[in-house]
Computed example of a mutant assay.
Amino acid sequence: MKLKRKFVAKPWGQDKLPQPFAGDRSSRIGEIWFEPPTGVTPQLMVKYLFTSDKLSIQVHPNDRQARRQGFPHGKEECWYILDAEPDAKLGIGLTKSVSTTKLHAAVACGQMENLIDWRPVQPGDVFYVPAGTIHAIGPGITLVEIQQNVDVTYRLYDYGRPRELHLEEAIEVATPAPYDLKHQSRAEADQSAKLIDGPQFRLFQVIGDDPDIFHQIQASEWHVVPLEGKVTVRGKLIASGECGLCTRSSEIDLKKNVRSLVACTMKPGGK
């Protein structure tokens, strides 16, 4: 099925969106969500993000921590960088391991930003963000975010902006340590590849008609995001800037594909 696009205004969003989303908007757009029809609850959620300012420094809980707070599961996510200005950076992990006491003090003293490891990014960079990772997205970036479908985010620091923080909850679930570089990779623009092989989902870049890279996987759902060209999902044509959802890889037709992202969630015992 083709998922419905929802344009979400954010103060840190962009006034002008790139193709294929270009067009006059009455407000800054920070996110585009892909929403299923009523009664369908996918395990994953796909978004485009467009930034002109720093997003808050935040963290997500793991399954055990989230369930203690009444959520069905935690949230892990990944970022695929589509475009980045020359000085664009992501904040991911800390520059060094610190105690929770020091983490609390850094927030209280307005020094939290200095603890974050700000990394330069460029198109094709891929980051897997495990639960507990302290993270933020800087300005001048366009990316695709794929995440577990649950609304649980704890805002740790917001540069003095007047928004609610979730300090105690964030510190309780945060891993106050550097980011593990094994979770970072690069996608070559002309190569099919498995980009993410996490415990909650997998992500592939697929170039052309190359279903073999994911054909044998036993997954419970598939999200298909064409970046160039078109694909067909369950008989529906999905173009660049859109997203399709299906339950079997055999329902994905790549004959018109140029470059797509394909994400899947695993069945119990699936390979």
Rank of each mutant, 00 (worst) to 15 (best):
K271M: 05
L261S: 06
Y157E: 06
D209H: 14
L237K: 14
W33A: 03
I146Q: 07
P72Q: 00
P162Q: 10
P11A: 05
S26H: 12
P226Q: 03
L90G: 04
E251Y: 11
M1S: 10
F71R: 14
P18R: 09
F71L: 02
I116K: 01
T232L: 00
D151F: 07
R28L: 15
T101P: 06
S240Q: 15
L261R: 10
V59T: 00
Y159M: 02
Q14Y: 00
R28D: 01
T142L: 02
G93L: 05
V173H: 05
D180A: 13
L227S: 09
E145R: 06
F34W: 03
A136M: 11
K255E: 00
P178L: 01
V225A: 07
Y179T: 04
P139T: 00
E85I: 06
V144Q: 06
A219M: 06
I207L: 12
G70V: 07
L55N: 10
G74C: 07
C78H: 04
V258I: 14
S249W: 08
T133L: 02
K89T: 12
K54T: 08
G270P: 06
T153C: 11
Q111W: 04
P72W: 07
S260V: 07
L103T: 02
I92F: 07
P178S: 02
D209G: 01
T51G: 10
E228C: 09
S97T: 14
A239Y: 09
G269T: 08
G30W: 09
L181T: 11
S97Y: 04
T265G: 10
P130M: 05
F214P: 04
R64I: 15
A66E: 03
S240R: 13
R202K: 13
E172A: 13
S250W: 04
P20L: 14
T153Q: 04
H223C: 12
Y48A: 01
M1F: 02
E221T: 05
Q111R: 15
E221F: 06
A9K: 12
G23T: 05
A84M: 05
M112I: 05
S249K: 12
Q43P: 02
I137M: 14
D180F: 05
F21Y: 11
L94K: 10
G241T: 00
P36K: 08
